[in-house]
Design a binder for these strands. Structure first.
Lengths: 108, 108
DNA sequence: TCCATATTTCAAATATTATTGAAATATGGA
DNA sequence: TCCATATTTCAATAATATTTGAAATATGGA
């Protein structure tokens, strides 16, 4: 991951509405949640929500799929893992240390 | 960590100059780097650098200490670990998975 | 096709953030 | 104290992001 890519990914999370949306989708799990339901759950008006989901899609932290009249959005764990790896890269200058941050390889 | 705190932490990283500064400090290691040297290394003018370091300090992702006429800034690994934990919280709805993201507990 | 509903786009206003030269402040050595 | 240098603050500008109602578009069922 490059610096610019990481900034785009981080920016997609560094905003209250979007972080709320992201965490709602993490909770919702791999099947995701329809846009209308996200709006209802978070209290974010549809047009604002759509704006933010577009940003998040562009950054790659969410995926979407259409199902009948609904569009389901879900968290993209693969991109999140890449971001975490980038942020901890060269951490401790290579010295091994104890912390382990498990994340969802299965849903990646 | 709360949603608002996480947004502040993420915002402190979600900007090209600041991510560059942060990664420079991660490379520099626990002893950190003097402000002037950071400016020189990254090409960010002193006044801009000062502005960004202030943001980063407020968010807690960097620490600083004065040494003679120099102020040394260093990455705060503890806060970064807390952020990573927050981002991966409830990941996979509790299902254990294989990815491990080691980070610097020793420098926390 | 027609309708109800789900979602997105548009547009305009508002709010927030970033940039940087110049001035101010702080520090320690001579 | 005086000077050289390190860093921050100020202030004005520029750039970017956020918000949301209304309108447009898309979808599938009747």
């Amino acid at each position: 991951m490059e610096n610019k890519t990481a900034v785009i990914t981080l920016s997609a999370l560094a905003q209250e509405s979007r972080l709320t949306i992201y965490r709602t989708l993490v909770q919702a799990g791999p099947d995701g949640m329809a846009a209308g339901k996200i709006s209802e759950t978070t209290g974010i008006p549809p047009s604002s929500l759509s704006f933010h989901l577009k940003e998040m899609s562009y950054a790659g932290i969410v995926n979407s799929r259409q199902e009948s009249r609904y569009i389901y959005y879900s968290a993209n764990f693969k991109v999140m893992n890449e971001l975490l790896a980038f942020l901890t890269e060269n951490c401790c200058a290579g010295v091994p240390c104890g912390v382990e941050t498990p994340c969802c390889e299965e849903n990646a």
